[in-house]
Design a binder for these strands. Structure first.
Lengths: 338, 338
DNA sequence: CTGAAAGCGCTTACAG
DNA sequence: CTGAAAGCGCTTACAG
């Protein structure tokens, strides 16, 4: 049952042509006559031949694999991104090799692995070590793009949504909804994403002449976000609205508010998230949130990466604006309907 | 900045040894004297040498990559499995190449890709085409194990939880809780997982002398599960408990019950799921469910797969029992405390 | 369009 | 333990 290994040499022999001819038939765009082509195809089918991708990759230096490094998959945004990335990449003839970066993994270790597998390009889609990893791979000459993460210095390619604008939109919406005691549980403030959303939000509020009653770093952790929620609402002067740095934390915030503190969302406290992952639309949360246009972000990421692989394109920083998705977790300003 | 490609030949030259020596130093378990070893290591570091995994893979026939085919990542069980799989595999020196099987992809296409990348083994962790894909790869001589899916015929290796037992446990728990009008929205009944849970459940109920008031195929779809919930509860004689074939659907069932039909869970209707994904523990759902011991399942999967890669081990069917995790979505039988 | 030959970067018997 | 040589399965100038 086990298919014996059949090589291009075998096919060539069977078809009565040279190995070169076989190679050409299986190389898109290479020149081969119709006659040769059909002889080769026929022989290949008879023998069950399949070109050895590894050998081809070694010769051409093109492995057709992209390394995707991701930190953890519990926040639904990342599995969704992975799914889209796979589709977009597959459409271009690439495959994904997964590199989960646990926090106790060393950056050097991961970089070693990425490089030794000769990935043609790298997409980092996570927190913490992204920048380090990206920088080192970039320095080693392999194209990288940071997905959903930026960095101010350096010249790495990156695609994010327009986080500053998103934060500002939330500020406007909340202010228009009549809120004046607004807190922010931010995304990790060491990440551009967390920082930009916070900045846009604070600036937006400032334009209305107010400041957030609190800004605390939730570090993308549900546990930390819950703790902050508790301490925020423990005071007699609790906030009447909370903007949370991503949906994943926002779910924990809502749960804490409702089931632990006995508060109503949005009657007592409005909550707004960021991402618009599928769960945000589930009725239990019905979360008002800024939608990250994941499809566009993924397409842009793939475009930039492949451009860099094919020729040494300049670095780019792409920001894609995302709309506010109004649902039921935050008071709606007059005149707004869902 | 771009590191020039440095080969084992270069290192050999610099270290004053043969290429074979270099190869041996980088091959775990190969014999090389301490002197040679240190010369080579030194030269390698100076030159920034890194063995080319592709070349090695081509020679040895061992790519050290495992193909993981997965259908979709919205059900949190699969990203979690992926994360665990990556860790377990990495610990053994393997990496994951991802193959998302969209429904409109042809089985043949996917199999072609898997084979041409010379993956050493395959794990299928999804629905629909799993069996087809697995069978063809197995026939081609490449080791496969079905994760969270079985099949009655054939001799493919597979690891699941003990789904029959799980279904039975749910039946006992619900009966003990005083329920007598119990419906089942099953997992896809063409999958062993869906079928086994259903059978165990029906059998379990039968032992108490009752039958489910309805068994409908939810096909792992939230949308379908919601529709079934609606029609089930539309009747004056609605069920007082629903066992749902997986957590992912159970969330939709609970949302439909509460927010659309205005029913209380568990006061009007008890709901029980299957999987115990992280979301099940979120207070909004607080779902009573059968826990699939994902860690053990993943470890078993990796063990079986690697055993088959290393030597031609016999096929295995592993079933790992999982406990009922009692939370708040179903009435608790007297005497039970959380 | 086609074939003979060289080569990709490594590993593996085979001698020593 | 070590090196020279052959070879893994393919692609790519180079001639024709």
């Amino acid at each position: 049952m086990m298919a014996d290994k059949v090589t291009s040499f075998d096919v060539a022999r069977q078809a009565g042509v040279s190995q070169s001819a076989v190679s050409r038939v299986f190389t898109p765009g290479a020149s081969a006559s119709a006659a040769t082509r059909s002889k080769v195809i026929k022989a290949a089918e008879e023998l069950g031949y399949r070109p050895n991708t590894l050998a081809r990759a070694m010769i051409t230096g093109k492995s057709r694999v992209i390394g995707v490094v991701v930190a953890y998959l519990e926040n639904q945004f990342y599995p969704m991104a992975l799914e889209h990335l796979d589709h977009a990449l597959k459409a271009r003839g690439y495959h994904i090799m997964l590199f989960m970066a646990k926090n106790d993994d060393s950056v050097g270790q991961i970089v070693e692995e990425l490089m030794s597998y000769q990935v043609e390009g790298i997409i980092t889609a996570s927190v913490a070590m992204s920048n380090d990893i990206a920088k080192r791979c970039h320095d080693a000459g392999i194209p990288v793009v940071l997905f959903n993460r930026g960095q101010d210095t350096g010249n790495l390619a990156q695609v994010t949504s327009d986080n500053v604008k998103g934060g500002r939109t939330v500020a406007n919406f909340l202010f228009a909804g009549g809120h004046r005691k607004i807190a922010h549980i931010s995304g990790w403030l060491e990440s551009s994403t967390g920082l930009d959303r916070m900045r846009g939000f604070v600036d937006g509020l400032a334009e209305h002449g107010i400041a957030p009653v609190a800004v605390e770093d939730g570090r993308y952790s549900q546990k930390i976000a819950s703790e902050i929620t508790r301490s925020l609402c423990d005071s007699p002067d609790r906030p009447d609205a909370i903007f949370v740095g991503n949906d994943h934390m926002a779910f924990a915030v809502m749960d804490t508010l409702r089931f632990e503190l006995g508060l109503s969302v949005p009657d007592d406290v409005s909550v707004i998230g960021y991402d618009d992952v599928p769960i945000a639309a589930w009725p239990a949360y019905d979360l008002t949130t800024i939608r990250q246009p994941i499809n566009q972000m993924v397409n842009a990421t793939v475009d930039v990466l492949l451009a860099r692989i094919e020729n040494d394109a300049a670095s780019e920083r792409i920001q894609i604006p995302g709309p506010l998705k109004i649902r039921g977790s935050a008071k709606k300003p007059k005149g707004f309907t869902r």
